[in-house]
């Protein structure tokens, strides 16, 4: 009995390279804890992240085809989804076609524009954009709206990223 205790105490002392049994056990248990946390945490993370992943693949679209949008009357706006992001197609009374992102660059409110108003105005915090260029002209928005390339064809309108 007493012999065993003596032996135990010997092994608790660091050896020449500074290792102790206690140190080894600490590292081993810590390592196991990390492995378990990873093995449980990774599937849970991927599980919760699935819709984000799906949306990212949807957002990767380069162009959207809007059927019959060429019949949009002059002086009106069409809201549509560019992948997973809201966007608008504006047909000015002058015949000019413009497509802009409909998400305010300030805090993400959805914008709406009715020609011939001089500005796109965000209802949330009063940010203002130029409806022809998307440029941020007043209020808090830090960046201009993303502008898409519009191609009007018979029977449909194609909106694409630059």
């Amino acid at each position: 009995m007493s012999e065993a205790i003596v032996e135990d105490n010997e092994q608790l002392q660091p050896d020449e390279e500074g290792f102790t049994r206690r140190g080894f056990v600490k590292v081993a248990i810590g390592g196991m804890g990390v492995v378990y946390a990873g093995a449980i945490g990774y599937p849970i993370y991927r599980y919760l992240e699935t819709p984000v992943e799906k949306e990212a693949s949807e957002a990767a679209v380069k162009a959207v085809d809007l059927k019959d949008a060429d019949k949009l009357p002059a002086g009106s706006t069409l809201m549509f989804m560019f992948g997973s992001k809201p966007a608008m197609l504006i047909h000015f009374a002058t015949g000019e076609w413009v497509s802009l992102s409909a998400v305010c660059q300030h805090l993400g409110c959805i914008l709406h524009y009715q020609p011939p108003a001089p500005r796109i105005v965000c209802a949330c915090h009063g940010g203002q954009y130029d409806p022809h260029t998307g440029e941020n002209v007043a209020g808090p928005p830090p960046r201009p709206l993303r502008k898409y390339i519009v191609k009007v064809l018979p029977g449909h309108v194609t909106v694409s990223k630059a």
Binding site: R46, Y47, E49
Partner: peptide, 9 residues
């Protein structure tokens, strides 16, 4: 069948 690791949970 669709959600990542949904089958496991």
């Amino acid at each position: 069948y669709d959600i990542n690791f949904g089958w496991l949970i």
